[in-house]
Design a protein around this nucleic acid. Structure first.
Lengths: 128, 128
DNA sequence: CTATAATGTTAGCTGCATTTAACATTATAG
DNA sequence: CTATAATGTTAAATGCAGCTAACATTATAG
C-alpha cells in the first residue's frame, strides 16, 4: 500500500513486462515494444531490481515482484481507461489516443482514474 | 503554424513567462514559480533563445518572440482547460488538479483539448 | 556436438535538466 | 556616491535515460 511514484520510463518498462502476463518476457521483446535498445532494457531492469519491483538473475528470467505487479497493474489499468475515454468519449483517433494515454497514465492519481471511469460510465449508459 | 514540440521543462518556462503578460519577468520570479535555481532558469532561457522562442541580452529583459508567444499561449490554455475539467467535472481537489493539469498540458494535442472543451460545455449546460 | 544466430551484458559516451558555489552586474538604501 | 543587497551568469558536477560497440552467454540448426 505504499503507492510510491516511479519515473515514466520505469513505469513503461513495468507495464510492458506486465502485459506479457508472466509468459517469460525477454529483454528483446521489451526492447521492441518500447523501441529502445537491448542495453537500455538491461539498464532499466537493473533499476527495477534495485527498487524491488523485478527479479532476475544474470541471463535469467524476468519476473515482477508482488509490489512490481501492483504498480504495473495500476499503470496498465489507467492506460486502458484513458485510451477508452479518449477514443469513445472524446473521439480521438486510436493511434493518437494510444500515444496520449501512454503519457497521461503516469500522471493521474488513482482517484482521478476512478472519477474518469465514473464519468465514462454515466456518459455511456446515457447513450441508450 | 509549425506546431513544433518542446520538452515539458521548456514549455513550463515558456508558460511561466507568458503568465506575466509582458510585465518584465525576472529570472528570479521564474525560479520561484517553478521551484528551481536561478542557474536553471538561465540555462533554460538560453535554450529558448537558441530555439527562437525568447529574446534577451546579457543582463537584459526577457521577452517572448511571436512564436514563443504562440507556444506559451497554447500550453497555458490547455493548463486552464484541464484544471477546470479536473475540478468542475471530475471533482478533483484544486491542488491535485493543478499538479495533474501541469503534467497533462504537455501531452494532449490541440484537437484533444478542443474535444475536452466541447464535452465540458455539454456537461455544464446540461446541469441546468 | 558444434558453428552460428539470437539474446544479454558491459563500458563508455551523449544530451537534458537539474544543482551548488563562485563570480559579475545591476539596483537601491543611506 | 558608494556599500550592500539582489539578481544574473558561469563552471563544474550530478542523475537519468538513452545510445553504440564490443563482448559473453545461451539457444538452435545442421
Amino acid at each position: 500500500m505504499k503507492n510510491k511514484r516511479y519515473s515514466e520510463s520505469l513505469e513503461d518498462y513495468l507495464e510492458t513486462i506486465f502485459m506479457y502476463g508472466g509468459k517469460d518476457v525477454k529483454s528483446v521483446d521489451i526492447a521492441k515494444h518500447l523501441n529502445v535498445s537491448r542495453a537500455s532494457v538491461n539498464n532499466a531492469l537493473n533499476s527495477l531490481i534495485d527498487k524491488g519491483l523485478v527479479t532476475k538473475e544474470l541471463y535469467g528470467n524476468i519476473a515482477l515482484t508482488k509490489s512490481g505487479m501492483e504498480v504495473s497493474k495500476k499503470v496498465l489499468e489507467k492506460h486502458e481507461l484513458l485510451k477508452e475515454f479518449l477514443i469513445d468519449i472524446l473521439g480521438i483517433n486510436p493511434e493518437q489516443a494510444e500515444k496520449e494515454a501512454c503519457g497521461i497514465e503516469h500522471i493521474i492519481s488513482d482517484f482521478t482514474a476512478v472519477q474518469i471511469k465514473k464519468l465514462m460510465n454515466k456518459l455511456k449508459e446515457k447513450k441508450d
